[in-house]
């Protein structure tokens, strides 16, 4: 029983950053914006979170700085894609490249420093229940409130939303910023909870997996929850198998999450019936109000 509980805790710990980042990206994509820079926002959140906690000595302030860093990065993305109408795919890649480089530069003096772990509340990392609450909150917001409806509408047809008098660009900025904040927390979780220290490139592709999760979940919050926990299980599985000493090379086990992501994408993308209703129709298309 204890082993099950421990395993579950470990799975939750591994799943939480994916869950947080994917939830944020889901809202961004629902508004019709494809931000491929999750990895970059996340790694900036991680370095800023560590730095914030390191400088102030308060890990909660670290979480705050990680949110701010994620939002700043997403604001940069928003300015390029929404105001300057730059290609969203390219800008997302740029955000990731910049984030990885900038975090390495900023974090240079943090390497090897002892981390400050976010205190647990009666044995539970507070961000774990927070992430679960966010699933319910985001789901309620997207499907039960007018603002959520507006976001979905903007993502479905920006021209129609504009014709009805909605501020397409404004709605998208907010959605992008929310995505940035969530990616920031996800990064902060890595450097303040998961492995409380700063390591260069410590996100190691989690941002990309989160992006895949959004597709895998066909843009539905509770499916993101399921998907994140599935991936948490896969990555823990590789640790467990390694500990068992079955003689499987560690590199093969480490590649399981990446192969699992590909498999998940294939299964879901091939199934048109699952994706057709929820895929935001204007995803990735820049909006230019006509004259």
């Amino acid at each position: 029983m204890d082993i099950v509980l421990t395993l579950l805790t470990i799975i939750m710990t591994a799943a939480t950053p994916l869950l947080l980042a994917a939830l944020g990206e889901m809202v961004t994509e629902r508004s019709g914006v494809l931000n491929l820079g999750v990895e970059g926002m996340m790694v900036m959140g991680a370095v800023a979170g560590f730095g914030g906690a390191y400088v102030t000595g308060n890990p909660w302030l670290g979480i705050l700085t990680s949110i701010l860093a994620g939002m700043l990065m997403s604001l940069l993305f928003g300015f390029l894609t929404l105001t300057l109408l730059a290609n969203q795919v390219a800008t997302g890649l740029a955000l990731t490249l910049l984030g990885l480089g900038l975090s390495a530069l900023i974090g240079e003096s943090f390497v090897g420093q002892p981390g400050i772990k976010l205190p647990t509340l009666s044995g539970i990392d507070p961000l774990v229940p927070f992430s679960l609450v966010m699933v319910a909150a985001v789901s309620w917001f997207m499907f039960r409130t007018k603002m959520g409806l507006v976001i979905r509408a903007v993502g479905n047809s920006h021209t129609s939303a504009h014709a009805l008098g909605y501020n397409v660009i404004g709605v998208r900025y907010l959605s992008v910023l929310f995505g940035g904040a969530m990616s920031g927390i996800a990064g902060g979780y890595l450097s303040l909870v998961y492995t409380p220290q700063w390591v260069e490139n410590m996100t190691s592709g989690r941002g990309w997996i989160a992006l895949a999760l959004v597709v895998f979940a066909s843009w539905l919050p509770f499916r993101i929850l399921a998907g994140a926990y599935l991936f948490g299980t896969i990555s823990i599985l590789s640790f467990v198998l390694q500990a068992q000493g079955l003689g499987i090379p560690s590199q093969f086990l480490s590649s399981l999450p990446y192969l699992g992501t590909i498999l998940a994408l294939v299964v879901i993308s091939g199934n048109k019936a699952l994706t057709r209703r929820n895929t935001p129709a204007s995803l990735g298309q820049p909006f230019v109000p006509d004259r």
């Binding site: 979905r152 479905n156 047809s157 021209t159 129609s160 939303a161 014709a163 929820n278 129709a281």
Partner: peptide
């Protein structure tokens, strides 16, 4: 409008 301001997936 001639071009409807509607949302297919809603």
């Amino acid at each position: 409008f001639q071009h409807f301001s509607l949302f297919d997936s809603l």
